[in-house]
Nucleic acid binder design. Sequence first.
DNA 1: CCAAAAGTGTTATCGCTACACCCATGT
DNA 2: ACATGGGTGTAGCGATAACACTTTTGG
Lengths: 241, 241
Amino acid sequence: MAHISSADYDPADFPPFAVTADLVVLTVRDDALCALVVRRGEEPYAGRRALPGGFVREREDLRDAAVRELAEETGLTPGAVHLEQLATYGAPDRDPRMRVVTVAHLALAPDLPTPAAGGDAAGAEWCPVEELLAGGGAELAFDHAAILRDGVERARSKLEYTPLGAAFCRPEFTVAELRRVYEIVWGVTLDPRNFHRKVTRTEGFLEPTGATTSRDGGRPAQLFRRGGVEVLYPPLLRRTP
Amino acid sequence: MAHISSADYDPADFPPFAVTADLVVLTVRDDALCALVVRRGEEPYAGRRALPGGFVREREDLRDAAVRELAEETGLTPGAVHLEQLATYGAPDRDPRMRVVTVAHLALAPDLPTPAAGGDAAGAEWCPVEELLAGGGAELAFDHAAILRDGVERARSKLEYTPLGAAFCRPEFTVAELRRVYEIVWGVTLDPRNFHRKVTRTEGFLEPTGATTSRDGGRPAQLFRRGGVEVLYPPLLRRTP
DNA sequence: CCAAAAGTGTTATCGCTACACCCATGT
DNA sequence: ACATGGGTGTAGCGATAACACTTTTGG
């Protein structure tokens, strides 16, 4: 079979696909890594949970579709969250009704003061990832358990070599808040003192605001914003072999 | 807009897309990182080079389509090469004729004794990546320069924390051959002695065959196969800050 | 004063860089 | 013998892990 650009190209040649953008939106909430899910009302998988998403429109870029879905479900806009493409899933029978290819995106959001359940986007809610994936993820519709697993794994590894842990925090946050993100996402405990040194000394990771807060109790902590770098060097590696 | 699963689902609701699988096939050849490209015969972009690829068939999984295209262009099968999904590109005007979403895949292949140009797959040839991306990649059709850049960057970073450098080598290879892969893909020079220690001591990276070869001249070198691990710990980090 | 959390200092160890040096082959 | 590349030893340095210790708040 030739590339679309080859001599035997004919618009009638290709099978039509539906293309959707699905979202793995993660946040840290009540000491658990949570994902945004909706409850399905229709067959197939009626009553089961699913990742939010929808059709890509006729003249819409893939990322734009993901941004639009994210805004509809959460009210969040890029800038407030991190959004990146995750992977694309297109097994022939992933949707029994028709051929659907979904371009999954990963979003990392701070814990929302206004939960997503209010306003326009009724129906979406945060659910601990551990619960969604319990029993092999059978609770989730379609291949959404696999997509969620891939999204969680991507988030875990991105914490190692990018400053994206901060995407789970409020715009201004303390080192301890950031550390709790790492502990919950990785499922480990970290030494507070070594973590503090590590993140404050890694050039470009954190930018001090000058202010302090005592919202976590004890001695007031400095507040930081995300720094400018995209990659951490050296990275924060998980595991202690 | 609702998810495909919502109450207002109707097969007529969604715009149809063509879905293609395109390939970034990389190899190391004549001291350069090279990609497999085809020459276009048709408008648009007639006479320009393009990444190999083609339509995903009616009942074919995305990876299967990539495997099929790879076999058609190179005769290679998974097992002989590493193949992974790279990313998906779907800007509305990326193909002026119609709405096409392409799921790009990345393949890493050893330098082929039988070049791809022979046999069925006439027209495909290896071209240095540097040459293809010179001048912003204007030589390449569609958005293929961006896809190639993303593929190369993925390959570069995968060499850091996975044993995939070995995917560029023959089934049995010496440490020096592996080192040259790193040097060419990263565009750096590495200390042969430290590299040797590093890769031979990283558990699971290399598995000695017991045999030696003197094909590179000088003292005969041990031959190795790829080891079993998927991730390297600790990783081989590029840059020397 | 005491509890709690922030933040600093110190030491042992590990991994990496740089480079001196020896080994095994082809010519 | 000598050139060529394979492979080992070692010293210095920077990063990490473990943990003692000081600082600054609230109650």
